[in-house]
Amino acid sequence: MRMAIVPVLGLLVGLAVGMAVNVRLPIQYAAYLSVAILAALDTVFGGVNAGLQQRFDPRVFLTGFFSNTLLAAALAFIGSLLGVDLTLAAVVAFGVRIFNNLAAIRHQVLQRKKIPSQQ
């Protein structure tokens, strides 16, 4: 539990900075941030899942987070250049992955709960 304190503080700092800085998104770029947020959410849940399964690797996690978000936004950008709505593809793909990760996390948590109750 103590390990979670610093990341939670980081989350709060990020939230506070984003709320304090008054950025108005130009409409052309707002779609890319949406896709990037989806990719980031997917990576975060993937990280939680990996942590629960004891196979969390900080290097994989960090590179995955940044490359996923940037690639998702870049793909959406290329799609907009070509007139192909790749944001939709990203929303579907990352949505499916997020729900898969959530299901995996739920399974892990339920199995963990079982062990102490049996003791």
Partner: peptide, 16 residues
Amino acid sequence: SWTIVAAVFGLMVSVQ
């Protein structure tokens, strides 16, 4: 790594 990811993620979410 969790801290960096959480901070960046929080920033993105709150901007949006």
